[in-house]
Amino acid sequence: MWTVGSRALFRRELLRFLRRPKNTFMPPAITNVLYFAVFGVILGGRIDEIAGFEYILFILPGLIVLGTISNAFENASFSIFHGRWNEYIHETLTSPLSYAEMIAAYVGASAVRGLIVGLIIAAVGRLFVPISVANAAFLVATMVVIAALFAGLGIVGGLLARDFDDLTVMNQFVLRPLVFFGAVFYSLTILPTTWQYVSLLNPMVYMVDGVRYGLLGYSDFLELAPAAYAEIVPLASLAVLATLTALVVALDVYLFKIGFGLSD
Protein backbone atom coordinates (compact mmCIF):
# COMPACT_ATOMS: atom_id res chain seq x y z
CA MET A 1 0.00 0.00 0.00
CA TRP A 2 2.76 2.43 0.92
CA THR A 3 4.58 2.18 -2.38
CA VAL A 4 6.73 4.67 -4.28
CA GLY A 5 3.60 5.69 -6.15
CA SER A 6 1.39 6.36 -3.15
CA ARG A 7 4.24 8.17 -1.40
CA ALA A 8 4.58 10.42 -4.43
CA LEU A 9 0.90 11.31 -4.26
CA PHE A 10 1.10 11.72 -0.48
CA ARG A 11 4.02 14.09 -0.94
CA ARG A 12 2.17 16.09 -3.56
CA GLU A 13 -0.83 16.39 -1.27
CA LEU A 14 1.30 17.45 1.70
CA LEU A 15 3.22 20.04 -0.29
CA ARG A 16 0.02 21.54 -1.56
CA PHE A 17 -0.97 22.78 1.89
CA LEU A 18 2.47 23.04 3.52
CA ARG A 19 3.55 25.59 0.92
CA ARG A 20 0.66 27.88 1.63
CA PRO A 21 0.64 28.14 5.43
CA LYS A 22 -1.03 31.53 5.24
CA ASN A 23 -4.10 29.86 3.78
CA THR A 24 -3.97 26.62 5.67
CA PHE A 25 -2.56 27.21 9.14
CA MET A 26 -3.00 30.88 9.89
CA PRO A 27 -6.81 30.86 9.94
CA PRO A 28 -7.23 28.10 12.55
CA ALA A 29 -4.48 29.65 14.66
CA ILE A 30 -6.18 33.04 14.68
CA THR A 31 -9.67 31.63 15.21
CA ASN A 32 -8.50 29.67 18.20
CA VAL A 33 -6.70 32.58 19.78
CA LEU A 34 -10.11 34.28 19.61
CA TYR A 35 -11.93 31.28 21.06
CA PHE A 36 -9.55 31.07 23.97
CA ALA A 37 -9.65 34.79 24.56
CA VAL A 38 -13.44 34.99 24.57
CA PHE A 39 -14.57 31.67 25.99
CA GLY A 40 -11.56 30.98 28.14
CA VAL A 41 -10.44 34.29 29.52
CA ILE A 42 -13.41 36.66 29.29
CA LEU A 43 -16.32 34.24 29.87
CA GLY A 44 -14.26 31.59 31.58
CA GLY A 45 -13.57 33.90 34.47
CA ARG A 46 -17.28 33.94 35.24
CA ILE A 47 -17.88 30.23 34.66
CA ASP A 48 -17.27 27.79 37.47
CA GLU A 49 -14.90 24.95 37.01
CA ILE A 50 -16.39 22.05 35.10
CA ALA A 51 -15.66 18.61 36.48
CA GLY A 52 -12.84 20.13 38.45
CA PHE A 53 -11.19 21.80 35.43
CA GLU A 54 -10.82 25.42 34.64
CA TYR A 55 -13.31 26.17 31.86
CA ILE A 56 -10.54 27.07 29.42
CA LEU A 57 -8.93 23.70 29.96
CA PHE A 58 -12.25 21.89 29.72
CA ILE A 59 -13.00 23.31 26.28
CA LEU A 60 -9.49 22.77 24.91
CA PRO A 61 -10.06 19.13 23.77
CA GLY A 62 -13.26 20.11 21.98
CA LEU A 63 -11.53 22.94 20.16
CA ILE A 64 -8.74 20.62 19.12
CA VAL A 65 -11.29 18.15 17.77
CA LEU A 66 -13.15 20.92 15.97
CA GLY A 67 -10.00 22.21 14.29
CA THR A 68 -8.66 18.79 13.43
CA ILE A 69 -11.74 17.32 11.87
CA SER A 70 -12.84 20.40 9.99
CA ASN A 71 -9.38 20.84 8.48
CA ALA A 72 -9.04 17.17 7.59
CA PHE A 73 -12.46 17.30 5.96
CA GLU A 74 -11.86 20.58 4.23
CA ASN A 75 -8.49 19.54 2.85
CA ALA A 76 -9.70 16.24 1.46
CA SER A 77 -12.90 17.61 -0.01
CA PHE A 78 -11.15 20.61 -1.53
CA SER A 79 -8.31 18.60 -2.96
CA ILE A 80 -10.60 16.07 -4.60
CA PHE A 81 -13.10 18.63 -5.81
CA HIS A 82 -10.51 21.07 -7.11
CA GLY A 83 -8.80 18.22 -8.94
CA ARG A 84 -12.11 17.25 -10.50
CA TRP A 85 -12.97 20.84 -11.33
CA ASN A 86 -9.71 21.47 -13.16
CA GLU A 87 -9.52 17.84 -14.22
CA TYR A 88 -5.94 17.42 -13.04
CA ILE A 89 -7.10 14.56 -10.87
CA HIS A 90 -6.73 12.74 -14.19
CA GLU A 91 -3.01 12.76 -13.51
CA THR A 92 -3.69 10.43 -10.63
CA LEU A 93 -6.51 8.49 -12.22
CA THR A 94 -4.58 7.63 -15.37
CA SER A 95 -1.61 6.41 -13.34
CA PRO A 96 -1.04 2.80 -12.35
CA LEU A 97 -1.74 3.55 -8.68
CA SER A 98 -4.26 1.13 -7.24
CA TYR A 99 -7.42 2.73 -5.88
CA ALA A 100 -6.36 1.76 -2.36
CA GLU A 101 -3.01 3.49 -2.87
CA MET A 102 -4.72 6.65 -4.07
CA ILE A 103 -7.01 6.72 -1.05
CA ALA A 104 -4.16 5.95 1.35
CA ALA A 105 -2.31 9.00 0.04
CA TYR A 106 -5.30 11.36 -0.03
CA VAL A 107 -6.60 10.32 3.39
CA GLY A 108 -3.10 10.23 4.89
CA ALA A 109 -2.20 13.74 3.77
CA SER A 110 -5.52 15.29 4.82
CA ALA A 111 -5.31 13.56 8.20
CA VAL A 112 -1.83 15.02 8.63
CA ARG A 113 -3.18 18.49 7.96
CA GLY A 114 -5.88 17.93 10.56
CA LEU A 115 -3.35 16.73 13.10
CA ILE A 116 -1.04 19.69 12.48
CA VAL A 117 -3.96 22.03 13.09
CA GLY A 118 -4.74 20.06 16.28
CA LEU A 119 -1.17 20.64 17.45
CA ILE A 120 -1.37 24.33 16.61
CA ILE A 121 -4.54 24.66 18.68
CA ALA A 122 -2.93 22.81 21.58
CA ALA A 123 0.03 25.19 21.32
CA VAL A 124 -2.31 28.20 21.31
CA GLY A 125 -4.08 26.76 24.36
CA ARG A 126 -0.75 26.34 26.05
CA LEU A 127 -0.31 30.11 25.85
CA PHE A 128 -3.36 30.54 28.06
CA VAL A 129 -3.17 27.61 30.42
CA PRO A 130 -0.67 24.93 31.44
CA ILE A 131 -1.44 21.50 29.98
CA SER A 132 -0.28 18.06 31.00
CA VAL A 133 -1.30 15.03 28.98
CA ALA A 134 -3.08 12.30 30.94
CA ASN A 135 -3.09 9.32 28.52
CA ALA A 136 -0.68 10.04 25.68
CA ALA A 137 -1.14 6.78 23.76
CA PHE A 138 -4.90 6.96 23.94
CA LEU A 139 -4.85 10.60 22.92
CA VAL A 140 -2.65 9.97 19.89
CA ALA A 141 -4.70 6.96 18.79
CA THR A 142 -7.98 8.87 19.06
CA MET A 143 -6.63 11.89 17.23
CA VAL A 144 -5.26 9.80 14.38
CA VAL A 145 -8.51 7.89 14.04
CA ILE A 146 -10.76 10.95 13.94
CA ALA A 147 -8.45 12.85 11.61
CA ALA A 148 -8.52 9.89 9.21
CA LEU A 149 -12.29 9.52 9.63
CA PHE A 150 -12.93 13.09 8.53
CA ALA A 151 -10.33 12.97 5.80
CA GLY A 152 -12.22 9.92 4.52
CA LEU A 153 -15.54 11.75 4.76
CA GLY A 154 -13.98 14.74 3.02
CA ILE A 155 -13.20 12.55 0.03
CA VAL A 156 -16.84 11.52 -0.18
CA GLY A 157 -17.76 15.22 0.05
CA GLY A 158 -15.29 16.12 -2.68
CA LEU A 159 -16.77 13.45 -4.95
CA LEU A 160 -20.36 14.49 -4.25
CA ALA A 161 -19.85 18.24 -4.62
CA ARG A 162 -20.98 19.85 -7.85
CA ASP A 163 -19.61 23.31 -7.18
CA PHE A 164 -17.54 25.11 -4.60
CA ASP A 165 -20.63 26.21 -2.68
CA ASP A 166 -21.44 22.59 -1.94
CA LEU A 167 -18.16 22.35 -0.06
CA THR A 168 -18.98 25.38 2.06
CA VAL A 169 -22.42 24.00 2.82
CA MET A 170 -21.00 20.71 4.02
CA ASN A 171 -18.59 22.47 6.31
CA GLN A 172 -20.92 25.12 7.68
CA PHE A 173 -24.17 23.29 7.97
CA VAL A 174 -23.19 19.73 8.70
CA LEU A 175 -19.86 19.75 10.43
CA ARG A 176 -20.13 22.80 12.66
CA PRO A 177 -23.52 22.05 14.29
CA LEU A 178 -22.41 18.53 15.08
CA VAL A 179 -19.35 19.93 16.78
CA PHE A 180 -21.16 22.62 18.70
CA PHE A 181 -23.66 20.14 20.09
CA GLY A 182 -20.87 17.66 20.59
CA ALA A 183 -20.12 18.65 24.18
CA VAL A 184 -17.25 20.92 23.23
CA PHE A 185 -18.42 23.78 25.42
CA TYR A 186 -20.30 21.93 28.16
CA SER A 187 -20.29 18.67 30.06
CA LEU A 188 -22.99 16.10 29.31
CA THR A 189 -23.42 15.75 33.04
CA ILE A 190 -25.11 19.14 33.19
CA LEU A 191 -27.83 18.07 30.72
CA PRO A 192 -31.17 16.55 31.70
CA THR A 193 -31.12 12.77 31.28
CA THR A 194 -33.20 12.81 28.08
CA TRP A 195 -30.77 15.19 26.41
CA GLN A 196 -27.89 13.07 27.58
CA TYR A 197 -29.37 10.16 25.62
CA VAL A 198 -30.07 12.32 22.58
CA SER A 199 -26.48 13.52 22.71
CA LEU A 200 -25.28 9.95 22.46
CA LEU A 201 -26.62 9.90 18.90
CA ASN A 202 -24.14 12.58 17.94
CA PRO A 203 -20.92 10.88 16.87
CA MET A 204 -19.03 14.03 17.74
CA VAL A 205 -19.71 13.47 21.42
CA TYR A 206 -17.58 10.34 21.40
CA MET A 207 -14.69 12.08 19.72
CA VAL A 208 -14.67 15.05 22.02
CA ASP A 209 -15.03 12.80 25.02
CA GLY A 210 -12.23 10.53 23.79
CA VAL A 211 -9.82 13.39 23.29
CA ARG A 212 -10.79 14.92 26.60
CA TYR A 213 -10.10 11.60 28.25
CA GLY A 214 -6.73 11.32 26.55
CA LEU A 215 -5.72 14.89 27.35
CA LEU A 216 -7.29 15.54 30.75
CA GLY A 217 -8.04 12.05 31.98
CA TYR A 218 -11.69 13.08 32.37
CA SER A 219 -14.60 11.54 30.47
CA ASP A 220 -18.29 12.33 30.75
CA PHE A 221 -18.98 8.74 29.85
CA LEU A 222 -16.94 7.48 32.73
CA GLU A 223 -19.06 9.62 35.00
CA LEU A 224 -22.33 8.55 33.44
CA ALA A 225 -21.69 4.89 32.75
CA PRO A 226 -22.40 2.28 35.39
CA ALA A 227 -19.27 1.64 37.41
CA ALA A 228 -18.94 -1.94 36.13
CA TYR A 229 -18.31 -0.73 32.58
CA ALA A 230 -16.19 2.24 33.46
CA GLU A 231 -12.93 0.56 32.51
CA ILE A 232 -13.90 -0.20 28.96
CA VAL A 233 -15.94 2.85 28.03
CA PRO A 234 -13.15 4.95 26.47
CA LEU A 235 -11.67 1.99 24.62
CA ALA A 236 -15.10 0.99 23.34
CA SER A 237 -15.62 4.50 21.91
CA LEU A 238 -12.23 4.35 20.26
CA ALA A 239 -12.98 0.92 18.80
CA VAL A 240 -16.28 2.15 17.37
CA LEU A 241 -14.60 5.21 15.88
CA ALA A 242 -11.83 3.09 14.38
CA THR A 243 -14.39 0.76 12.82
CA LEU A 244 -16.28 3.71 11.41
CA THR A 245 -13.06 5.09 9.94
CA ALA A 246 -12.27 1.75 8.31
CA LEU A 247 -15.75 1.68 6.79
CA VAL A 248 -15.51 5.21 5.44
CA VAL A 249 -12.08 4.55 3.93
CA ALA A 250 -13.40 1.35 2.36
CA LEU A 251 -16.25 3.42 0.91
CA ASP A 252 -13.70 5.87 -0.54
CA VAL A 253 -11.84 3.06 -2.25
CA TYR A 254 -15.10 1.69 -3.60
CA LEU A 255 -16.19 5.08 -4.95
CA PHE A 256 -12.85 5.49 -6.72
CA LYS A 257 -13.15 2.01 -8.10
CA ILE A 258 -16.54 2.67 -9.65
CA GLY A 259 -15.36 6.11 -10.74
CA PHE A 260 -18.10 7.92 -8.82
CA GLY A 261 -17.90 11.59 -9.77
CA LEU A 262 -14.59 10.86 -11.47
CA SER A 263 -15.22 9.13 -14.76
CA ASP A 264 -18.07 9.43 -17.26
Partner: peptide, 22 residues
Protein backbone atom coordinates in the same frame (compact mmCIF):
# COMPACT_ATOMS: atom_id res chain seq x y z
CA UNK B 1 -8.08 19.31 -23.01
CA UNK B 2 -5.62 20.83 -20.57
CA UNK B 3 -5.73 18.97 -17.28
CA UNK B 4 -2.57 19.94 -15.50
CA UNK B 5 -1.99 20.43 -11.79
CA UNK B 6 -1.97 24.19 -11.23
CA UNK B 7 -0.52 24.25 -7.77
CA UNK B 8 3.01 23.38 -8.77
CA UNK B 9 5.69 24.55 -11.16
CA UNK B 10 5.64 22.35 -14.24
CA UNK B 11 8.87 20.57 -13.38
CA UNK B 12 7.32 19.38 -10.15
CA UNK B 13 4.15 18.40 -11.94
CA UNK B 14 6.23 16.05 -14.05
CA UNK B 15 8.10 14.72 -11.03
CA UNK B 16 4.82 13.95 -9.34
CA UNK B 17 3.41 12.26 -12.41
CA UNK B 18 6.49 10.08 -12.74
CA UNK B 19 6.20 9.32 -9.03
CA UNK B 20 2.64 8.06 -9.42
CA UNK B 21 4.05 5.64 -11.95
CA UNK B 22 6.41 4.24 -9.34
Amino acid sequence: EFNVDRFFPIREVLIHKAGYHG
